[in-house]
Amino acid sequence: MLDILDIALLFFMAVTAISILRLKNLFAVVMLGGIYSLLSALIFVNLDAVDVAFTEAAVGAGISTVLMLGTLALTSREEKQEKKPSHKIWLPLMVCIATGAALVYGTLDMPRYGDPNAPIHKHVAPRYINDSMDEVGMPNIVTSVLASYRGFDTLGETTVVFTAVVGVLILLTGRRRRDKREPTLEELEEQEEEV
């Protein structure tokens, strides 16, 4: 039953992605992007990864959609029509097919979906599941891994978010100041020469 749900959700995601490719109206593209994030959040719920699903729904479907809409308000709502494709489609198509085939070939070696003996379930996961209640004492193991066992990583992530906002502030609010800058010495001299 859950497999059918997964396949159906993945099918919807593929349909959404293809319609994003074909659409020219950027408003609809942004909305479909939100739907795509919501569908992947549903897949995460299906995988019992509620924390990830929560983040995906809040960030992917919520905030990033709003930010993309804010960007659309600054630019245009329609994608510019390309006059004539200036390149042949065969080379990119061959590259895509070759890369895709290589990736599919790579998945053949991977453990089966949901295999309890996969290497990823044998490394540190048993320690977290068995001992985290005695060592950290949190019912939600995800939180104890995130904030305690892997606290250093989360510190890095928080710093990344902070760096991102600093970058946005510098890039988007610095420009207005530059427009009002004082004329340089050379420009003043040129003006004097003209006079």
């Binding site: 509620v50 924390d51 699903a53 929560f54 983040t55 809040a58 960030v59 919520g62 905030i63 709003v66 949190m138 019912p139 939600n140 995800v142 939180t143 104890s144 995130l146 904030a147 992530e157």
Partner: peptide
């Protein structure tokens, strides 16, 4: 409630921010 149920600082921050947005 992030230590007992799903959630935590990241999700809470986004939700708090979305109300102001």
């Amino acid at each position: 409630h992030g230590d007992f149920g799903p959630g935590g600082g990241f999700q809470a921050g986004v939700i708090f921010g979305s109300s102001f947005i």
